[in-house]
């Protein structure tokens, strides 16, 4: 079947089997490999993208269902060389380790902040519950999103909470 859609601002089209998942269309046909596959049950969220502005797990959507949609993947989030505040936050606050869940996490977080640029820690934690991370324990992901929220509000982000300045470490 023929499908066409807008991905990261470009018109794209392709010929796909009806059973082709959207994530496979994005990864295999478009060779945009930033969107990852971590499970088959839509639990891990590594494949999260924006479809018409809404975060969607692209492993549970068929390519043909996205016909005519406006899609943003992690590759399309930055404005040229200017990182999206959420990307900047993840870099500044060590919000990633292995990086595999990161694109999906960033897409969920950016959608969360588009709705509410001043979320509480609890709102952030529940807002990203659909995205699993096995490396960070989420602590620095939350701090990264708080950093981004502050930037989006035009405020100075809170300083990092690394243990670096603890005194009296050596007996």
């Amino acid at each position: 079947m023929q499908v066409s859609m807008t991905v990261n601002g470009s018109e794209v089209s392709g010929d796909v089997e009806p059973r082709t998942l959207l994530v496979h269309f994005i990864r295999e046909n478009l060779r945009l490999t930033g969107t990852h596959v971590g499970c088959e049950t839509s639990y891990c969220g590594a494949c999260t993208i924006h479809v018409d502005g809404t975060p969607v797990k692209s492993c549970t959507m068929l390519a043909v269902q996205a016909n005519g949609a406006n899609i943003t993947t992690v590759e399309g989030l930055a404005d040229g060389d200017n990182l999206h505040p959420v990307q900047e936050g993840f870099w500044e606050r060590h919000g990633l380790q292995c990086g595999f869940c990161t694109p999906g996490m960033i897409m969920s977080a950016s959608a969360l902040l588009a709705e509410n640029d001043n979320p509480s820690e609890d709102e952030i934690r529940h807002g990203i519950e659909g995205n699993l991370c096995r490396c960070t324990g989420y602590h620095n992901i939350v701090r990264s999103i708080e950093y981004a929220a502050a930037k989006m509000r035009g405020e100075e982000p809170a300083p990092p909470d690394w243990t670096q300045d603890f005194e009296g470490a050596t007996a």
């Binding site: 934690r125 519950e129 995205n131 699993l132 989420y138 602590h139 939350v142 603890f166 050596t170 007996a171």
Partner: peptide, 24 residues
């Protein structure tokens, strides 16, 4: 065998961690 039956901790399940350190 799937993440449906094998629940991993989510951000909502965990608190912020408070870390200190000593150096030996």
């Amino acid at each position: 065998g799937s993440l449906v039956d094998y629940p991993l901790p989510t951000a909502g399940d965990l608190p912020a961690f408070e870390l200190g350190w000593t150096n030996t």
